[in-house]
């Protein structure tokens, strides 16, 4: 007895692909990212308040008010780690950034929730942020090559890199 035809299997496969696209892809747990960043010796977190001039600057970088009034960071021996979120098109992308001497040491996509643009997770893209720092005009001092079909995700990661560098400068200077 033939229960499901080829057409039915095709439709089921399409539904499965659609549902998987809606699910969040956890590429690396934030706690794993922190352990890697600090060689299993994660320091106590600190807080930076996104109010006053700091809040206005972050808002200018993001193009919208920050989602929360304070941001958590981890700092040890001249390095700071940040776990930040920003919406690419419709859903937030979680990114981990490690900064050393005001330059990005590494940038990892930790959780990706958008339906397209996931190519930004690959090291071939994220490695472009290595050694990037903030230029005088508040933008990155390196050029980030885009990915066709992932423009909004690329822009979101670039904004987060700028926010992380700016906040690092605030906590380092203080």
């Amino acid at each position: 007895m033939k229960i499901l035809s080829g057409f039915h299997w095709l439709m089921l496969a399409l539904v499965g692909v659609s549902l998987s696209a809606l699910a969040a892809e956890v590429y690396k747990k934030p706690e794993t990212f922190l352990q890697e960043a600090f060689n299993q010796q994660v320091p106590e977190p600190g807080l930076v308040w996104l109010v006053g001039d700091t809040g206005k600057k972050v808002e200018a970088i993001l193009g919208h008010p920050p989602d929360a009034l304070r941001e958590r960071y981890w700092a040890k021996q001249g390095r700071s780690a940040w776990i930040l979120e920003e919406v690419g098109k419709s859903r937030p992308i979680t990114v981990g950034v490690v900064i050393r001497k005001h330059r990005i040491e590494r940038l990892d996509v930790l959780i990706y929730r958008e339906s397209r643009g996931w190519e930004v997770r690959y090291p071939v893209f994220t490695d472009q942020f290595r050694q990037a720092s903030l230029a005088e005009n508040g933008k990155l001092d390196v050029t980030i090559d885009g990915i066709t079909g992932a423009t909004l995700s690329v822009n979101a990661l670039t904004r987060l890199a700028r926010v992380a560098l700016y906040l690092d400068s605030q906590v380092s200077d203080s």
Binding site: K29, P30, L34, P45, L47, D67, A68, L69, E71
Partner: peptide
């Protein structure tokens, strides 16, 4: 949340 205004101060997730 702030008691006055109900603004989001921070979101603590699994890692926190």
């Amino acid at each position: 949340l702030t008691r006055e205004g109900g603004d989001v101060v921070e979101r603590l997730r699994d890692e926190d």
